[in-house]
Simulated assay, not measured.
Amino acid sequence: MEIIIVLGVIALVVLFFVAQYNRLIRLNISVDEAWAQIEVQLKRRADLIPNLVETVKGYAAHEQSTFDAVVTARAKATTASTVADTAAADGMLTQALRGLLAVAEAYPDLKASANFISLQEELATTENKVAFSRQFYNDNVRELNTAVKTVPTNFFAGFAKVTEREFYEVEDPQDRKAPSVKF
């Protein structure tokens, strides 16, 4: 009878261990999946940019510095590899795109162009998907990091080779400034 109780306790401990290990692995995979979704959306946005730049160029050829800023930012965004580098490049690209769209505001014929309108709408949709993907990634990172830091799963994190992950934070100077309101 004592052997059955000891075997039962050992089986429960093993099951608990397996459950915690598998939970950490699932959380880690979820973070990887969420990161892949960010990369897909950023790639989609990067693929839209050359068409948008060419469309605006046709109307505003003398705005070369704006075009150069967008091209440079796109190049950095497509070559970034770490979460921090990708987030920094993403912020830089967002700023450059804002500059490009500001240039477009000065050209009524461009704003009325069906091609430009279509590209702008597609870019806006993609930006929403990028924002959603960032949030999804950060939610998964929060859940993983919480598991890695809290009892009992923190005891199994090393064995599962799962560590804390970095949040995706875009540093956008315009987000830090208070808007000016004039009446």
Results as ranks from 00 to 15, higher is better:
His62Arg: 12
Ile29Gly: 08
Glu33Ala: 12
Phe16Val: 00
Ile25Cys: 09
Gln135His: 13
Gln20Gly: 08
Leu123Trp: 09
Asp85Phe: 08
Ile49Gly: 08
Ala87Ser: 09
Arg44Ser: 03
Met92Asn: 14
Phe17His: 03
Thr125Leu: 01
Tyr107Gly: 02
Asn138Glu: 12
Thr82Pro: 13
Val18Lys: 03
Arg45Cys: 04
Glu127Tyr: 11
Arg44His: 02
Asn22Glu: 07
Leu24Val: 01
Gly99Ile: 13
Glu63His: 15
Pro50His: 03
Gly99Phe: 14
Thr78Ile: 02
Ala104Phe: 13
Asp139Ser: 14
Ala84Thr: 13
Ile49Ser: 06
Glu54Gln: 12
Asn22Ile: 11
Gly99Gln: 15
Gln41Val: 02
Ser81Thr: 15
Gly58His: 01
Gln95Pro: 12
Glu121Phe: 05
Asp68Tyr: 00
Ser30Trp: 01
Glu121Arg: 09
Asn51Leu: 05
Phe116Asn: 02
Val103Ile: 15
Leu48Ser: 04
Ala106Ile: 08
Pro108Met: 06
Ala19His: 01
Ala89Arg: 05
Leu110Met: 15
Ser133Leu: 04
Gly8Pro: 02
Val56Trp: 07
Ala131Glu: 12
Ala84His: 09
Lys57Asp: 15
Asn22Met: 10
Lys111Trp: 00
Ala84Ser: 11
Asn28Arg: 11
Val130Cys: 03
Ser113Met: 14
Ala61His: 02
Glu121His: 10
Glu63Leu: 10
Val31Pro: 00
Gly99Pro: 15
Asp32Gly: 15
Asn51Asp: 00
Pro50Tyr: 01
